[in-house]
Simulated assay, not measured.
Amino acid sequence: MDEPTDSEHLNPLQRFGRDVKQVRLARKLTQKHLGTSTGYSEGYVSKVESGTLLPRPSQKFAKGCDKVFGTGELFEGLLRRIDDGDHPSWFSPYLNLERKASRILDYSATLVMGALQTEEYARVVFRVSNPGAAAEAVEGKVRARLRRREVFEQDRPPLLWAILHEACLRTVVGNAEVMSQQLEYLLEAAESPHIVLQVMPFSAGAPTAHMKPFTVLHFTDSRSLLYTETRVGGRMHDSAQTVDTALDDYDLLRAHALSPDESLALIKTLLKEYRP
């Protein structure tokens, strides 16, 4: 059997960093020069090249490298493939659409939606759902999940309206510390003008208790898509009738949920319960 090459011992971020370094040196550029040209610091470039920048280099940096190096869309493409590799193949199409959406309407029934999860919360979720996965594979999924936040760092971020069933807040993922960090992050996220949070209380009962998690994406060209997910994968629905039915369900959920202010008050109350 052939001995593994040095490249095979590297994870995707390390290989990306190695490639950046090789091209930089071939162009006879310093880390400082590359950093200045791409809008980042010398230290940022150093972390990229060592593969230690988490969750991963930005798309802006990758585009900047292609511009400075004259490599077309090489590094932007490499970074995109890293993203896709850390997600199930059936989830990548949804992520590409999520980045382009103008509004995201999400209902979470048992777990906090991925884009609002903290690092530790996501790590526990992936460890439990992938019990046989290697630690590096789990960490790759965690990094990929945290990168979903970048959609809210765009010049024109989408409006996220998230309804969380109270079960999402009371189901202990990991331990009390993990949950307290998660609730703190929800409170922090709700301060953004682009994020609205509502909690569906247990007291709402029927007709909302039977509803499964789903997401509706709206786009500036007036298109709307419904995304649903099961244990074996996700599915996009573009039928107008199907999307309209989902929107009717979402209106019903909003009507039975606590107001945004009442929702934040409940989160704060639960946060006190999780803190020692």
Score class of each variant (00 low, 15 high):
F61V: 00
F61A: 07
F61P: 05
A62Y: 02
K63G: 07
G64T: 02
C65G: 11
C65Q: 00
C65F: 03
D66H: 10
D66N: 14
K67I: 07
V68I: 12
V68Y: 02
T71K: 15
G72D: 12
E73Y: 00
E73V: 10
E73N: 14
F75V: 13
F75E: 14
G77R: 15
L78G: 13
L78M: 15
L78E: 15
L79Q: 07
L79P: 00
R80H: 01
R80D: 08
R80S: 08
I82Y: 11
D84A: 15
G85W: 07
G85A: 11
G85M: 11
D86V: 14
H87T: 12
P88G: 09
P88V: 04
S89R: 01
W90D: 07
F91M: 06
S92K: 10
Y94A: 03
Y94R: 05
L95S: 06
L97C: 05
L97S: 11
L97H: 04
E98A: 05
A101V: 06
S102I: 07
S102Y: 02
S102H: 01
R103D: 08
I104F: 07
L105W: 05
L105I: 02
D106Q: 14
Y107P: 00
S108D: 06
T110A: 12
T110W: 02
L111D: 05
